[in-house]
Amino acid sequence: MDASFFTAAVVAGTPLLYAILGEVITEKAGNLNLGVEGMMLIGAVVGFKVALITQNPWLSLGGAMIAGGIAALIYALLTVSLRANQVVTGLTLTIFGTGFSSFMGKNLMGEVVPDNIKLAFADFPLPLLSHIPVLGQVFFNQGILVYGGYIATILAGLYLYNTQIGLNLRAVGENTAAADAAGIKVSLYKYIHIIIGGVLCGLAGAYLSLVYIPSWQENVTAGRGWIAVALVIFCKWNPYRVLVGAFLFGGLDIIGFRLQKYSFYISQYLIDMLPYLVTIIILIVVSARKSISGLPPANLGDSYFREER
């Protein structure tokens, strides 16, 4: 197994990266959005449709991101303003998103992404960085959306841990009542960050439909949204760890084909179980040790009522 496997792992992990980042931000605000799969699918179909109509790569991405944001807005409206149960709302979003994407995608079957868009997202080496032995080939000879993933991760980390707004956001998720008492506009923070989460999930979906498999396919996400939800925990809600988690599981996803060459045989399906098993182990260990660094935001999943404060 040479560097080409790792290069492919980075590519396979990029949609996961965006989706996990999006959900991390949403959960930091205290909302559990199980609609990731739905938002990714909505982003995928809208992105593809805009691509066919406009033939413009950036408009396509923009369309996907806006669509993801609107889907998240529906969730936010229901859970933040109307105090609906977050788990059920999120699940509904996934059901709706799956149906929406399948429905809109009917006429897109067999269509291929326009060439200029393929070109815009194609691999190009970064000067200097791509000459680093091995690492250069794996990380710095990729498409622009992969580089975007690195940037998004760093930005998210800086935002959460090095800015006042980021601190406020974490407060909202950890102790909503105290944040409210301190004057932070809880609802506004939740809305904005839930929508940002949706935007990133829409982008993840667009990556799948426009770059990863450049022709329309039913159910293009194939469960990646749920893996992303699991990996949020694996990455302990920390953007920097998301890089590791996304690429690791991107690699595990495709390792089966590479292993077929060798005589020992691990069933791909047992390998497929890994993200979920690992998440469970982390869940258990963290709750047993009650270590602060790995705990979810304390008010995750709660609807906030100022009146009941």
Binding site: D2, A8, Y212, V220, A222, F257, Q268
Partner: peptide, 20 residues
Amino acid sequence: WTHTWYDPAREKEAAKALLD
């Protein structure tokens, strides 16, 4: 082997493994 008749993503990944 991909163990599916229809899954463009998996089919493409298998092809990539061969191309590599």
